[in-house]
């Protein structure tokens, strides 16, 4: 990363830390400790399944809440608080600022997710499991969660460039939920006889990122292997959307008058 976005990214990460965003880790740790103790007592041979399912779901939900609620304020807050006035008097371009803000939040999410994953691993060790080769699928599932969070952050950042946090939250969550059900929506369109509905559902399917692609929690919980081809496919899929969203954000924000 070039110097300007890096400076902004580090400051964005520092803001998240000082605003005690990482305190969610305490809640996650308590959840994992509670689950491990409970599973140990009602052991019926599905400890791994329960812990992995619970752990990965929590990582995903905690991350989603962070990505959406911090993401929608990334730019909006800086405009409202007028901190951009002094910043843009420095030799930094608007797109560099956006990339820096985005990278800063993604860095926060990565560190948060890594620490939660360590918590999940500790819970698995507590219930008396040693790690096996099949556990690589847990790491891949975590990686997919991170990709989806990076994508959600890019969507939130895009809306943050021109909309209020409340509307941005609604739009971002709307796209996320639509993305989860994208395949179902197209399936529904295929069942109707209306050409318009068929076309509209197809447009939604191709336009909105398909978030179900990133969900490998069930496979990881059952110890199934995840094909490596899916790793690079999902990576490329997320990157294309992220780059397009950052370009769109930059195009909108570069023309915006700061009140």
């Amino acid at each position: 990363m070039s110097a300007m976005p890096r400076v902004v990214a580090i400051n964005t990460f520092r803001e998240a830390v000082r605003d005690r965003v990482l305190y969610n880790l305490v809640v996650f740790a308590l959840l994992m400790i509670g689950a491990a103790i409970l599973v140990g007592q009602i052991s019926i041979g599905i400890e791994r399944l329960v812990i992995v399912n619970l752990g990965l779901s929590a990582i995903s939900i905690f991350g989603l809440v962070m990505a959406v609620f911090i993401g929608v304020g990334l730019v909006y807050k800086e405009i409202e608080k007028r901190t951009l006035y002094t910043l843009f008097s420095k030799p930094i371009r608007r797109w560099e600022f956006l990339v820096g803000k985005y990278a800063g939040l993604v860095l926060t999410l990565v560190i948060n997710t890594v620490l939660m994953t360590i918590g999940l691993a500790a819970a698995l060790l507590y219930i008396g499991r040693s790690f096996a080769r099949a556990d690589v699928s847990i790491l891949i599932a975590v990686y997919f969660i991170l990709l989806s969070l990076a994508l959600v952050t890019a969507i939130a950042l895009f809306f943050s460039c021109f909309s209020s946090p409340l509307l941005s939250t609604l739009f971002t969550l709307g796209i996320y939920v639509t993305g989860i059900f994208a395949a179902d929506i197209r399936g529904f369109g295929a069942l109707t006889s209306s050409a318009f509905l068929k076309g509209a559902t197809s447009v939604v399917y191709y336009l909105v990122p398909n978030f179900r692609n990133f969900n490998s929690i069930a496979a990881a919980a059952h110890g199934e292997s995840i094909p490596f081809s899916l790793v690079w496919q999902n990576t490329a899929y997320a990157l294309i959307y992220i780059v397009l969203l950052l370009i769109a954000s930059s195009a909108v924000f570069s023309r915006r008058n700061l009140k």
């Binding site: 110097a3 300007m4 400076v7 400051n11 520092r14 803001e15 000082r18 605003d19 608080k81 007028r82 901190t83 006035y85 002094t86 008097s89 420095k90 030799p91 930094i92």
Partner: peptide
């Protein structure tokens, strides 16, 4: 912008930073 400095009217800053950190942040640019 390397050659100009600007003080806005009623300036707002990142209030989670100390004065030293704030100036260090701006100097990095």
């Amino acid at each position: 912008h390397r050659d100009i400095g600007y003080l806005p009217e009623q300036p707002y800053f990142y209030d989670y930073l100390t004065a030293r950190e704030l100036l260090d942040y701006y100097a990095r640019f």
